[in-house]
Design a protein around this nucleic acid. Structure first.
Lengths: 93, 93
DNA sequence: TTAAATTAGCCATTATTTGTCAAGTCAATA
DNA sequence: TATTGACTTGACAAATAATGGCTAATTTAA
């Protein structure tokens, strides 16, 4: 999901995989996997990508975090109940 | 949080750490850490504990999952926005 | 105090994630 | 149809994180 979003942004900005990979100083194959969701982006990479592709950092980080949460919950039962508990706990702080 | 809950249940049922640990076939020190949140419970252990302590399995699993989600999100920005995205994605399925 | 219960700290083992490279597919085009 | 460029795939080693098991220390309750 975040990968798909980044791929779209990259293509809108006419960057090749290897060009963006170079800017991020990572392997092209790695970025390919990241964009297709096979591997995770680091938070720092998302922030860097937002700068490079002139995108909204907050939006990207939000999608990135949503991905991680989704991956954690995926396949479990009672996900919505658990989310409610998390929201409750967040309010306490 | 799930650890705290399990500790309460264990004490209500007058089980010692070593007794519950024995039933779960894990080390006492390990269970101690789990109850204090230093280490994670496995899902199977939660299910087993629900049986042993005659507790509501759904409730325990929900708290257990909420813990994992909270841990994933902890310290990040835009958590609530990310949660909304997760809920949206869950609806799509 | 002292004995039982719990916690802390290590270290070895295992699992998961990451980085790197070489080979592969596919589409455009010479 | 051979070549080229962009991207993907798979394999594997390196790095990181999680787990298990043990012993010593600390806390608690009698």
């Amino acid at each position: 999901m975040i990968g798909q979003k980044i791929r779209e942004l990259r293509e809108e900005n006419d960057f090749l995989l290897r060009q963006l990979a170079a800017k991020l100083d990572i392997d092209t194959a790695q970025l390919s996997k990241m964009e297709r969701g096979e591997r995770l982006f680091k938070k720092e990479e998302i922030i860097e990508i937002a700068k490079i592709l002139k995108a909204n950092e907050k939006e990207l980080l939000t999608i990135w975090l949503a991905d991680k949460l989704y991956k954690t919950a995926e396949g479990e039962k009672h996900i919505l109940d658990a989310i409610k508990l998390v929201e409750k706990k967040l309010q306490q702080k």
